[in-house]
Design a protein around this nucleic acid. Structure first.
Lengths: 218, 218
DNA sequence: AAATTTATACGTGCTGGTGGGTATTTTTAT
DNA sequence: ATAAAAATACCCACCAGCACGTATAAATTT
């Protein structure tokens, strides 16, 4: 089951974009240290296949429609604790990185880095080491060096109602419009709004929307 | 210079994400009908290289930070009218599609389709035909069947200064703060703001920020 | 059963942004 | 050289949202 025994690393790929899968596959195919044991554009189907397939390393995208990479990684960690996970992402935003680290992934590389880096990531991970892209490491360093800035990694736990409000704000509705839509008073909307800004520690709609997008609320 | 003469299609790839370039390259490499004459993660550098390189087909991503695929395609169309352009995008939103069609691209495939489709797109385009992914075609059909809906195709071409303003808005600065930072009057910021909202056809900061994130402006 | 969270709602004063303009200078494109 | 686009700046009236509050019913959690 390990790389040493069969002399090839067994890789499973999950990515929303078939073309990305095809690309990675083609590249690994030409390198006899790797073997692509399977792939899927659907995280859920991938979970089933992994059960039978038992690869060494899972390469997963993070921003997937069906199930986020974070959720997938969580499930994987629970079901197959030994399976190594390498996150492959477009973004190096702190929230996502820290979410993934918390889940306990083994590596995080950005899509804007080359394939060589991906290969070394795979090799290092298979050795039990961790691997992070330079930009990701930099972001982590920054997070550490800024002792306890107000932005923390606070879990922005909005209530369902508040999330609804955020969604409507993002749809360019004003308080009156939101009230109408939810059959509540404009005053109530104002109160929700206040609470949302307080909780998210944002001071303008701009910040709120950025956060909401980062956290995949909208 | 054409595919028939040298029996290989010369392809140039532009994409923000090196890993995507690497993937496509690896795949085309294994097919002797294609030849990757060059690639770049920077649209601007690509433009220079294409001048010398003169490929048959340019594969370009659409959502790039430096220069959007739309802008790149426009420049290409003006400078090298014979060069075929194949857009490769994550999104099938109507605005982008119609922008690209207007510029006069030769094909549009989505990243969530397989590599085989990419290959046939390349072959058909080299024959002077057009090629569009199924989803893209569907979106076009829908657009036609819905006679003249209000959503039109707005060109979101913000000026450099306006983009600067958008960035500062997204950083939760108010007009006064922005003016201070850019050494301009608060009145000027107000004017920029007005123009930005008019151009982007957004009516609140929420919409603007969403758009800005979509378009990778921030 | 008690405590907490969530969702509801109102008042008031202030200010920052909106929408309506107009206009000049500088830069870029033709 | 000239037209067009971009960047600069101001005026005025209006009101939506913010910052302070306070308060109560309903649902959840402990």
């Amino acid at each position: 089951m390990c790389a040493f025994l069969k002399n090839k690393l067994s890789i499973y790929i999950v990515d929303d974009h078939q073309i990305m899968i095809d690309g990675i596959k083609a590249l690994l195919l030409s390198d006899d240290r790797f073997y692509v044991s399977g792939q899927n554009t659907s995280p859920l189907k991938a979970l089933e296949e992994i059960e039978k397939n038992r690869p060494d390393i899972l390469i997963t995208d993070i921003n997937m429609k069906e199930l986020s990479g974070i959720e997938l990684a969580k499930k994987i960690r629970r079901l197959f604790p030994d399976l190594k996970i390498l996150a492959l992402s477009m973004h190096d935003d702190r929230a996502t990185i820290s979410d993934m680290l918390e889940v306990g992934i083994n590596g995080y590389v950005l899509k804007n880095t080359g394939m060589e880096e991906l290969k070394s990531a795979l090799l290092r991970i298979s050795n039990g080491q961790l691997f992070f892209s330079e930009d990701v490491t930099a972001e982590m360093m920054k997070a550490i060096s800024e002792p306890r800035n107000p932005l923390q990694k606070q879990n922005v736990s909005l209530t369902p109602r508040e999330i609804e409000i955020v969604k409507l704000i993002s749809m360019e509705l004003n308080n009156a419009g939101i009230g109408e839509k939810l059959f509540i008073s404009e005053r109530t909307v104002e109160t929700h709004r206040k609470n949302i800004f307080r909780k998210t520690n944002t001071k303008s709609v701009a910040g709120l929307i950025k956060l909401a997008i980062e956290q995949h609320i909208i």
